[in-house]
Design a protein around this nucleic acid. Structure first.
Lengths: 158, 158
DNA sequence: CTTGGTGCAAACATTTTGCAGCACA
DNA sequence: TGTGCTGCAAAATGTTTGCACCAAG
């Protein structure tokens, strides 16, 4: 089958160390469900990490094919779903309302004001929100990995 | 053409008064763009208001057809887009990752913890968040109409 | 008559599924 | 041999567009 080397989190330097545990998380989850950590899945995970932000499934296909791998859309979508189950990837809506995917771990929290009258999106930085978030999660015995806070607002004159 | 009576925000009692200004907002926006407030569009707006929560385009079609109106999907989608432009409707992702639409004005704030390991969605009630939200908006000179706060978390053992 | 709106059907984009063959225990 | 995984192609879903005709100024 003439495969290229399998990317491995411990052997690549193109991926920040913060993502290192991801491979393990994914592996563990697959094993727990009687599924396999295949070369194809390792490559998709690697591509997802390199995306570094919201991406479309098609981009993963292009990325991997450009790297010389033969991959089908079906495998991409199936692997994305597995990653969602493993809590590694989430689906999000871009500002253009197009559904995309993005990594959860290490993802920058998305705190924005969406001006519904002008469609302007304002990024905000709210340290108190992190505190609040962590407090809430602690109450439920959960560990937050990321969050999203969107305020929908208009100008006072509208 | 045998039309049934046109729903009008001032003549129906099935729609809470809080939504009354919406009709005006939509009308104003259409007029400003040289477009028309047609019976079809009034009916779609009415249906959207009655949805009272996230909905799919198809539901609007069914709802209106069940009420005896002849309506095409094209008109539904075109009207939804107009409403998005008018800042009345937004696209959102449900807990099941399915894209839906929902009203913006008067929408119930959506504060949830999404357990990425189990897909469980926990509704939370955080009064401090409203305060925080209003404080932030005040700083920018904006009026909040709704918000959405999603925390992505896993169990501590995951 | 000109501009915008409608329904219908076809086109499109994205995601899912059925299936035959492969990999590996 | 059995279970899971893959690519491919077809199907299913959700949305947009082209077009002929209608409606209102």
């Amino acid at each position: 089958m003439d495969l290229q080397p399998i990317p491995d989190m411990n052997e690549t330097d193109s991926v920040p160390p913060i993502f290192e545990p991801l491979c393990a998380v994914f592996r563990r989850r697959l094993k727990a469900d009687g599924q396999k950590y295949t070369p194809e899945r390792a490559r998709v995970l690697d591509a997802v990490i390199r995306m570094d932000g919201p991406f479309e499934a098609e981009q993963l296909v292009e990325d991997l094919r450009a790297s010389g791998y033969r991959v089908s859309k079906a495998t991409i979508y199936r692997t994305i779903k597995l990653m969602q189950d493993a809590g590694i990837v989430q689906r999000v809506l871009g500002g253009d309302d197009v559904p995309r995917y993005q990594m959860i771990y290490g993802a920058k929290p998305d705190d924005t004001i969406v001006r519904v009258d002008t469609d302007e999106v304002i990024s905000i930085d709210i340290p108190e929100l992190i505190e609040l978030r962590d407090k809430i999660c602690a109450k439920y015995g959960l560990s937050p990995s990321s969050h999203r806070f969107q305020i929908f607002a208009t100008g006072n004159d509208a």
